[in-house]
């Protein structure tokens, strides 16, 4: 009796091991139409994307959450839906593409007549966006990360009236990298995506190239 039971157990054990092996094999060696690759390029920009035979395991690097500004509509849910309080999403300034405008669409409420730093003029609810005079007529805008709550009001204003240099981004020193991002679940435009951890930023206009072209290219290395 124990002999037969032992044999059946061994058989089942082998079966389960084989099933687990098949499962991981299917996941690792599946065909894929991947968006990201551990070699640091998007499939869209890769010359061999058509003939790429890399198993998925090779690109299965760590992933982190990031916000794609081409889809974002600045609904403000980033500020409220993150498991972190304040949110791990914050406004990030791409200085390289800022116009240093006196009348900054991201800083001032629409219809502001006198361009002063008075609280009633400011779009930012927490005074996180700082305005500093550089030279006539240019002003520098910096973000106090401690105060920023990621509501995206300035991002909306800057994108609508200015260059779009203020962008919402997941700050990875704060992000817990939840298995399923709680903001992504509530994002109305599905703007949250998993990106390779070695290319964690989806900011545009950071590089040396002209910001106008950077807008089309997508991810730019930090």
């Amino acid at each position: 009796m124990p002999g037969r039971r032992e044999f059946l157990n061994t058989l089942m054990r082998g079966g389960i091991l084989a099933a687990l092996g098949l499962l991981s094999g299917a996941v690792i060696f599946r065909s894929r139409d991947g968006k990201s690759c551990s070699y640091g390029f998007d499939c869209s920009g890769c010359s061999r994307s058509k003939s790429c035979m890399l198993p998925a395991a090779l690109e299965a690097r760590q992933t982190v959450w990031q916000l794609d500004m081409t889809k974002c509509i600045q609904c403000g849910r980033c500020a409220t839906n993150c498991v972190m309080s304040p949110s791990a999403v914050k406004c990030t300034h791409a200085f390289a593409m800022c116009g240093y405008c006196d009348l900054c669409g991201g800083y001032f409420k629409p219809g502001t007549k006198i361009l002063t730093t008075a609280a009633e003029n400011q779009l930012c609810p927490t005074n996180a966006l700082k305005r500093k005079f550089i030279e006539d007529p240019f002003f520098e805008y910096t973000i106090d990360e401690e105060l920023c709550i990621g509501c995206g009001k300035c991002v909306k204003g800057c994108g609508a009236f200015g260059n779009g240099s203020l962008q919402l981004q997941v700050r990875h020193d704060r992000c817990k990298n939840c298995n399923e991002c709680s903001i992504a679940r509530n994002c109305p435009s599905q703007a949250f995506t998993r990106v390779p951890a070695n290319k964690p930023s989806l900011m545009r206009g950071l590089g040396k190239e002209r910001p106008g072209t950077a807008a089309k290219k997508g991810g730019v290395d930090a």
């Binding site: 500004m69 974002c72 600045q74 791409a94 030279e135 609508a160 260059n163 807008a215």
Partner: peptide, 17 residues
């Protein structure tokens, strides 16, 4: 606009200081 793509509406200033 609803989706705000970065567009270089204002050129980058050339600072004198």
């Amino acid at each position: 606009p609803l989706v705000t793509l970065p567009i270089q509406r204002f050129p980058k200033p050339e600072f004198e200081t």
